[in-house]
Design a binder for these strands. Structure first.
Length: 543
RNA sequence: CGGGACGUGGCGCAGCCUGGCAGCGCACCUGCUUUGGGAGCAGGGGGUCGCGAGUUCAAAUCUCGCCGUCCCGACCA
């Protein structure tokens, strides 16, 4: 939840060969809108929401024999190569893999079914961990009285520029404007105050899955959108130590565990410097990941709110000795921004690569061609067998569509493993397995597939993780001076002594759009105090 | 808010300067041939040219106004 906190025939032509050759023509960018987003002219708005204030390898059946050549007239790349223009590549992936597009209102997005299925998998996995950590799901309203926001000074100040405020509803001016929630500390605080009477009611561990709205000036699909989906946990604890421990536990056991084990994205954990704290928090901890271009993305945050909200909303309890005490609250969240992280951390020049544990679709069984129905039938049996073994699989038997088109499409979508079933393979009782992460192919007996696939998926899972980790390590530099850090952070992460970063140093870094992403202990742990002498700051460019 | 661009079938664009039947690529539909890496050929459907006024025999094209979008900056993370 942090404010703003929150991826032919010529049988020997490798995809990389296609690109090597020429072609200037990069695929057109996707700016989506064209003419007329219909302007609604209906005169009586029932509800007005206004922003406040400011307004193949492949191919080759065996790669070893693939002749290396770059065809003179290579086809245009499907995607803008990552190295050429990373943001454009990102947009191309969103479009070509049919992940998302922008909505009619600036900053909004439409999440298409394939991407939404991935999001649902994220929700499943995160939700399970949240419940394991003891929190319970609940739901609080989208609309919040504006007066609630104003009760916590820093909170309002932080959020007011991005609020969408409803001033007219039901055909009338409202007596008190209502804000569309940018986060729910305030409403939930109000109810926590009602529900908590004694120390026996603590800790109160709540979570909700919801959408929130923060009016953004520079939206980017998934990374920063005006409306996004997330999970926000809100807890009340008896002591500061309990709150701290729980916020840290969420960061470790829910977020980092999910990101590393399921998303396959290595993340740094650390404490945010004061300027990057959530509005109203006394401490903000975060998971930071490195994207394919070396920039940092904050993937999740966990906050200690001290007694700020407890004071503002009168969240108190009676302790064992009968005294009234103020609670210590925490809040934590991860959002659809993780979809952006997934794309940018794992995507390659062929498109998305979804790690198998996350994938809503792990295996696509592709019928290469079929003249008499036997191939499709064999593919179906294989599919059913895989599904029976718990593999999330689907069949692609659209034999009317050329093989290459279908193969390319599934690669764009990043399905971890493709099983090609064709007449040639089948004649030998074999099928071809093609890994999305490495493009490696292997030929396996029909009856061995089910025994092979689950383990292979795990191999792919760790290969993706390891690749992301290797990238991060290769682009992380230990620095002893601010100038060194400024140079290193342009390409990746610079680790510098936190004690060295006085205001002048931060100012210097800021000139190159570099910020402190988090502060860690020397071995990468969560520091107990921000100002411990040997703390290390991770400096980078950030999304 | 300052600066700069751009609005033409679903998407990407040409046409505008020099007014005269609204075009191209992709996508889509039909048929045939194809199918082990982005199919080919033939045929076909789809557009009040952002909106409104003006000039003109005639406006996508010229003029004025408005709206919208994008980029850079600012702001914000």
């Amino acid at each position: 939840m942090g404010r703003r906190s929150d991826g032919g025939p010529a049988s020997g032509i490798g995809l990389s060969d296609w690109w090597a050759g020429s072609s200037d023509s990069t695929n057109p960018p996707p700016p989506v809108r064209s003419n007329g987003a219909p302007t609604r002219s209906s005169s009586t708005p029932r509800c007005v929401v206004a922003p406040s204030n400011r307004g193949a390898d492949t191919s080759s059946r065996s790669s070893s024999t693939a002749p290396v050549r770059s065809p003179p007239m290579a086809k245009a790349p499907i995607l803008t190569p990552r190295a050429e223009d990373f943001p454009r590549w990102y947009q191309d992936v969103l479009n070509k893999a049919q992940l998302a597009e922008s909505g009619p209102v600036r900053g909004t997005m439409v999440i298409r079914p394939y991407a939404y299925a991935i999001w649902e998998r994220m929700v499943e996995e995160v939700d399970r961990r949240i419940k394991a950590a003891g929190a319970e799901n609940a739901y609080f309203p989208l609309f919040i009285p504006q007066s609630y926001l104003t009760r916590e000074a820093e909170h309002v100040e932080g959020f007011s520029p991005e609020l969408a405020v409803v001033t007219v509803a039901g055909g009338k001016e409202l007596d008190e404007p209502v804000v569309v929630r940018p986060t729910s500390e305030t409403v939930i605080g109000e109810y926590m105050a009602k529900w908590i009477q004694s120390y026996r009611d603590l800790p109160l561990l709540l979570n909700q899955w919801a959408n929130v709205v923060r009016w953004e000036l520079r939206p980017r699909t998934f990374l920063r959108t005006t409306e996004f989906l997330w999970q926000e946990g809100h807890c009340a604890h008896a002591t500061e130590a309990d709150g701290h421990a729980y916020a840290a536990r969420i960061l470790h056991d829910v977020y980092r565990d999910f990101m590393v084990e399921v998303l396959g994205i290595p993340v740094l954990i650390g404490v945010k410097p004061p300027e990057e704290r959530f509005a109203g928090a006394t401490n903000t901890m975060a998971c930071e990941a490195m994207m394919g271009d070396g920039k940092a993305l904050q993937m999740g945050t966990s906050h200690e709110l001290g007694q700020n909200f407890a004071t503002a909303f009168d969240i108190t309890y009676q302790d064992e000795s009968g005294e009234q005490q103020l609670c210590w609250t925490t809040s934590w969240g991860v959002s659809t921004r993780m979809m952006g992280g997934l794309i940018m951390a794992h995507g390659d020049d062929r498109g998305l690569r979804v790690p198998p544990r996350l994938a809503a679709l792990q295996v696509v069984v592709l019928v290469v061609k079929d003249d008499d129905g036997t191939v499709t039938e064999a593919a179906r049996r294989l599919h059913d067998e895989l599904a029976g073994a718990g593999v999330r699989a689907r069949i692609d038997d659209r034999v009317g569509t050329p093989f290459g088109r279908r193969a390319t499409d599934w690669e764009l979508k990043g399905v971890p493993l493709r099983i090609e079933v064709g007449p040639r393979d089948l004649a030998d009782g074999m099928v071809t397995l093609v890994r999305r992460d490495s493009a490696e192919k292997s030929v396996v007996g029909l009856d061995e597939v089910v025994g092979t696939v689950p383990a292979l998926l795990e191999v792919i899972q760790s290969a993706l993780h390891d690749e992301a980790l290797a990238l991060r390590e290769s682009r992380t530099v230990e620095c002893a001076t601010v100038e060194e850090a400024a140079a290193a952070a342009t390409e990746g992460f610079a680790r510098v002594p936190w004690a060295m970063l006085d205001p002048a140093a931060l100012e210097r870094l800021g000139r190159d759009a570099l910020t402190v992403r988090c502060v860690q202990t020397p071995d990468g742990g969560l520091p107990e105090r921000l100002d411990d002498a040997d703390n290390v700051a991770v400096v980078a460019r950030a999304y």
